[in-house]
Design a binder for these strands. Structure first.
Lengths: 233, 233
DNA sequence: TCAATAAATGAATCGGGTTCAAAAATAAAA
DNA sequence: TTTTATTTTTGAACCCGATTCATTTATTGA
């Protein structure tokens, strides 16, 4: 029964080819300005055939985000594994993570952005789709790996998993925003920094701030720091 | 000639009414899932009439972003003016700015997001539109006000306007990302913080880090801090 | 070689943004 | 007030692009 398997492989390959074609067109014209005609032409197939491989235009979009997320997750995993072996400082690890984040964001950012920005932006139908479910699951997996890293890094002083998760969200937000700004301002040409330097500096000056509670100046009326007291909600 | 003026006023009022109606529908269904039928019904007018007041669906969208940006700019201005009078600490001012940013982002964020995320996402035609031009101009104005603030705050150690602008972008990015995360995780219910506390803590722990170059731990191989040395690009 | 099945096509459908000719309302003129 | 001009408003028609589907073409297994 080698035929079935070959077909399986061919089908996967074809879907990857289409996806890459779509990525190229999206990259040059933007998602909303791209028609399936454009994608079909780039992939050298007919329009209708796209629907044998993807449920919809938005599904292609989500598939691209998924691809990016999977790649990031792999990078994250190897970064954390390496850091475990070498007992690197939290700061060095964070820098590596930030780099992985930037790597993943550059080619796949637009897709992930639109997903993140507003799930509302996607047709409701699609939200049920399995692609989005898998994307969600991969992302949660990455966040969970980060959480474990935070818990195990004494520098962060997270007392429990909940607190660690909050740090993760904060880190994620900072990376997100900084990438957006760096990328948005002409891939950093507004900064006098190369990409590498920018990441190093952000981690050094900003992210590390989270890990350290010994700030030199306390907030005026609110003495709380991240985990010392909780406002009762 | 009071008639002409009254009509002028009525026209403005009507366009505001339509915009608010659109905002309500967008908020509940999302931009892409909203049809102009929906907006027309909510505004209690016919579909065609929308086009007397707005050039396109995307123009309504940009108008909403503009409205938000103008509001933020006003808040920013008064915050900075107040801080000038009271000689508040940079940290206190940043906290106020962050609050203004969050305020503006909550109701108008989606629109601004999509614009920011990728201009490619908007139809090319629209990019020529005057609404987008005005939005750009208001935003640049806000960034400029921030830049002036940074320049004048000794804490930031910006040697010149260029350096100050880089700090502004960094701050902007952090606010952007943190808001996205806070808002995205169920308006903060994943955090054990109220909105107010979250903002205070972000500013306290993260943003203040930018202003302080005396970090306790230097990056391993790269001793540079933000403005002491520049990589030569 | 010949069904049977799968892959591929592109014309038809359909939804929604946009346009437009015509109706309704309002203002100006007589 | 009546008439004419202008402005506002309407909703049906238009058009583009995502999606579907009947049909054709290619592949497989007998």
């Amino acid at each position: 029964m080698g035929v079935k398997e070959r077909k399986e492989r061919e089908k996967l390959q074809r879907s990857q080819d289409i996806l890459e074609a779509a990525r190229r067109v999206f990259e040059s014209k933007g998602f909303l300005n791209t028609t399936l005609q454009d994608v079909a032409k780039e992939a050298e197939i007919s329009v209708g055939l796209i629907y044998r491989y993807f449920q919809s235009k938005e599904d292609m979009f989500a598939s691209l985000a998924l691809k990016g997320a999977e790649q990031f997750d792999k990078n994250l995993e190897s970064t954390l594994k390496k850091s475990g072996r070498k007992k690197s400082s939290a700061q060095a690890v964070l820098t590596d993570i930030a780099k992985a984040f930037f790597d993943f964001y550059s080619p796949y950012g637009e897709y992930f952005d639109m997903l993140l920005y507003s799930y509302k932006g996607l047709k409701q139908v699609q939200i049920q789709g399995s692609t989005l479910t898998r994307l969600m699951s991969v992302t949660l997996g990455s966040l969970d790996k980060l959480k474990t890293f935070i818990v195990e890094s004494a520098e962060f002083r997270a007392k429990n998993e909940d607190e660690a998760l909050q740090v993760v969200f904060l880190l994620w937000g900072i990376l997100l925003g900084c990438h957006k700004i760096f990328d948005g301002s002409g891939r950093g040409h507004l900064f006098a920094f190369s990409r590498e330097d920018f990441i190093t500096q952000v981690v050094h000056q900003v992210m590390v701030g989270i890990a350290k509670n010994e700030s030199t100046s306390q907030p005026k009326e609110d003495k709380r720091v991240f985990f010392d007291e909780r406002p009762d909600l």
